[in-house]
C-alpha cells in the first residue's frame, strides 16, 4: 500500500495542510449564513474537526484552553450538554463533549469547572428506557440505536458504564438484528451501515461481540463496495465517503477489512478531496463539509494510509486517546 501511494498521481495524495487550514477556518465563517444555520451542530462539529486534526497529526491546530471553555459553556445543570450555549441538552452533543474532553485530556477541567463526570453520567443514564434497554436522545423520547451507542461510548470513557443496565441494552441491540446479519434503528428496521456501526460498536464496548454473526455481516458489508471503489450504506444505493467509516470500522471490528479493495477505496476518498480549499465531500466534485472530512480521514486511517494517526474503530477517536483512558 505505502509503495503504491508513492506512485499515486498528485491529486491522489492527501492534501494535509489545506485540510488543516480548512478545519481551522470553520469557526471564522461568521459572515456565511450556513454558519448560523448549523449552530445546532456546533459541539458535534468541534468533535469532528478536532478528531480530524488529531488524525492529521496537528492536534494543536485548535487552541486547547478555548476548546475546553467552549465545551464547558455548553453544559447544563443536569449534566447534559447542548450543541452550543442556549441550546438544550441532548445525547448527541453530550457524547461529543465527552469525546472532545477525552481527546484533549480535560476530564479534570470537567471535575473542577464543569458539573463533574458523575453528573454527566447521571444525565446519560437517565435516558435509558428501563423496559427495553434502549436510549432516548433527550427528555422528549426519540429512541434510536445511535443514542444507545453514544451512551456506551461516553459512559465507558467516563468509567461509568455501571450506571446503566448493560444486559438490557445488549438484548435490545440483538433485537435489532436482521436475517442479513445487519442491524437497524430499532427492532424491525432495515439494516443500515450507520446503525450497524452503532450496534456492533455497542456490543464491542459491552464485551459481547460474540453475538454478531460475523460471517453473514461481513458478506453484507463487503458488498457495500461498488464500481468506482466507494462504499454505499444499503443495497442498491449510491456511494458516499461517510460509509468509508461506518462500513470499514464495522469490518475492522469483525476482522474482515481485507474483504474489500483497500486501494480502490483509498483512491475514491482522495478523489473527494477539495485539493485547493481543503475538506472532503460525499462524492467527487461535491461541496465539502467537516462531517465528510472526518469520515474520509478515519477511513483512510483504518486503511493505514501513510502519515495518518491510527483511529480507534470502536470510539472514533485517536487510538492514543483510548489507550490513555481505557488502557486498550
Amino acid at each position: 500500500m505505502s509503495e503504491k501511494s508513492k506512485t499515486l498521481p498528485q491529486e491522489l495524495r492527501l492534501a494535509t495542510s489545506v485540510h488543516v487550514k480548512y478545519i481551522q477556518s470553520l469557526d471564522t465563517r461568521k459572515d456565511e449564513y450556513e454558519y448560523w444555520l448549523t449552530e445546532h451542530l456546533r459541539l458535534n462539529g468541534l468533535y469532528w474537526g478536532l478528531t480530524a486534526l488529531h488524525l492529521l497529526g496537528h492536534p494543536e491546530a485548535l487552541p486547547r484552553a478555548e476548546t475546553i471553555d467552549f465545551v464547558l459553556s455548553c453544559q447544563h445543570e443536569n449534566g447534559g450538554f447542548g450543541a452550543a450555549p442556549g441550546h438544550d441538552a441532548h445525547m448527541l452533543s453530550t457524547v461529543s463533549a465527552v469525546q472532545i474532553l477525552a481527546m484533549i485530556d480535560a476530564f479534570d477541567d470537567l471535575e473542577a469547572r464543569g458539573k463533574g463526570k458523575a453528573q454527566v453520567g447521571k444525565y446519560i443514564a437517565n435516558l435509558q428506557n428501563r423496559q427495553t434497554g434502549t436510549f432516548a436522545g433527550d427528555e422528549w423520547g426519540e429512541e434510536d440505536t445511535r443514542f444507545l451507542y453514544g451512551a456506551f461510548n461516553a459512559l465507558s470513557l467516563l468509567g461509568l458504564l455501571d450506571l446503566v443496565n448493560v444486559d438490557k441494552a445488549v438484548d435490545h441491540v440483538v433485537a435489532c438484528a436482521n436475517f442479513d446479519g445487519g442491524y437497524g434503528v430499532s427492532p424491525g428496521a432495515e439494516s443500515h451501515a450507520g446503525q450497524i456501526f452503532t450496534c456492533v460498536a455497542a456490543l464491542t464496548i459491552a464485551g459481547r461481540k460474540n453475538l454478531v454473526d460475523a460471517d453473514r455481516l461481513g458478506k453484507w458489508l463487503s458488498e457495500r463496495q461498488i464500481a468506482g471503489g466507494g462504499l454505499n450504506g444499503r443495497p442498491e444505493k449510491k456511494e458516499d465517503v461517510c460509509y468509508s467509516w461506518w462500513v470499514l470500522s464495522s469490518l475492522e471490528m469483525i476482522g474482515k477489512t481485507h474483504w474489500i479493495d483497500r486501494d480502490q477505496l483509498i483512491a475514491f476518498i482522495l478523489r473527494c478531496q477539495d485539493p485547493e480549499n481543503g475538506g472532503i465531500s460525499d462524492r467527487p466534485g461535491d461541496m465539502v463539509d467537516v462531517w465528510h472530512t472526518l469520515f474520509g480521514l478515519t477511513g483512510l486511517s483504518l486503511l493505514e494510509y501513510p502519515g495518518l494517526e491510527p483511529v480507534d474503530e470502536v470510539y472514533c477517536l485517536p487510538k492514543s486517546t483510548t489507550e490513555r483512558i481505557l488502557g486498550k
Binding site: D31, L37, T38, H40, L41, N44, G45, Y47, W48, L92, V95, S96, Q99, R146, Y149, G150, N153, G194, Q195, F197, T198, D240, C242, W246, D274, N277, S281, D282, R283, G285, D286, M287, V288, D289, W291, H292, C316
Partner: peptide, 24 residues
C-alpha cells in the same frame, strides 16, 4: 456523532468567492 444533519450531501462544489453584492 452519527447525526447527518447539516452535512452537504450531493451538492456540487462551487466557488466560495462572493461578489461584494452577494456578501451584502
Amino acid at each position: 456523532m452519527a447525526d447527518q444533519g447539516g452535512s452537504a450531501h450531493g451538492i456540487a462544489r462551487a466557488s466560495r468567492v462572493r461578489t461584494e453584492e452577494q456578501r451584502k
